[in-house]
Design a protein around this nucleic acid. Structure first.
Lengths: 156, 156
DNA sequence: CCTTGACCTCAAGCCAACTTGAAGTGGCAA
DNA sequence: TTGCCACTTCAAGTTGGCTTGAGGTCAAGG
């Protein structure tokens, strides 16, 4: 059977049902139809959701991702955009690497207080000047609510 | 003169005055006192702001950062926390690197549509499984409002 | 027949980290 | 002395990406 109900999709894609409804509302995914009230998705949606996850991971907003699919559903991702993102990502990676090294140093640093450690101060100034935007400290998605849509990933 | 008014601090630290008031309210920074209504900061606050920026960059929330300063103002950053963050950062970097390579490949890939490219599909599945949280796509701070607190960085 | 439970809708809520707006104050140069 | 305008306060708004809640529908199993 190629028709998945929302719970099944949720389970397979690792998102909640409400997220799926939200994505549908935003036009990021579509259901093949309904059986009664219930949405039926076909299995391709899983792939699409992976694509969406990929886009999110790369730092695209949902709106941007939405614009990347043609009306037909084909992912019409412009290659230029991809490489632009790749380069942006590369810059981010470089900064993060420097930061990681700095943190490691500071963690191992023998100076009594971090402020007395020259390396730490150096990171400090580069962090100040660098326009690196914070990594999202998104709240770690709740895995379980009490009733109803328990179609969450997690213990299932 | 060691006493900076809020505008000066804002300019030097590259944040808006409202951000500084907000940070003060949250207890992340403190002003040395007031001249009339106006806050006076001493120059050390710049360093502190750099520290805050560093923390943000590393993915700490403002609350977490707040907890890192002792009541005295000394940055009591636990080294364990630093290295934990460093390792977290390292994992993020690894994922981002894979993603970057994937994007580069997809950009250069000769397959007619991305979905037909095996490499792309591979990235897709790893992005799906990986719990990499999206990089913040924070809105690119507005540099200028019309009046009042124009103490923003930017054209200055 | 009745309950259960997975689904449905729609509106509202949440979170962090700020920003914006309205209305007021006061330091300082001319 | 005057007037400018950078400052002040406080409350409310914004953004993105969902989540939560109330109240409802429906198919299947006991």
């Amino acid at each position: 059977m190629n028709e998945l109900d929302i719970g099944e999709v949720a389970r397979r894609a690792g998102v909640t049902a409400s997220t799926l409804r939200f994505y549908e509302e935003k036009g990021l995914i579509a259901s093949r139809g309904r059986r009664g009230l219930r949405r039926l998705f076909d299995a391709e949606v899983i792939e699409r959701l992976a694509l969406i996850a990929l886009g999110r991971t790369a730092g695209f907003s949902l709106d941007e991702i939405g614009r990347m699919f043609g009306a037909d559903g084909q992912p019409r991702i412009e290659r230029g955009k991809l490489s632009a993102k790749a380069e942006e990502l590369d810059r981010t990676i470089k900064r993060l690497s420097a930061l990681r090294d700095g943190l490691r140093h500071a963690a191992a640093c023998p100076a009594p207080s971090h402020m007395e450690c020259p390396t730490f101060r150096r990171i400090l100034s580069s962090a100040g000047s660098g326009a690196l935007r914070p990594l999202a400290a998104r709240k770690p998605r709740r895995l379980i609510s009490k009733g109803g849509d328990r179609t969450t990933n997690g213990k299932d």
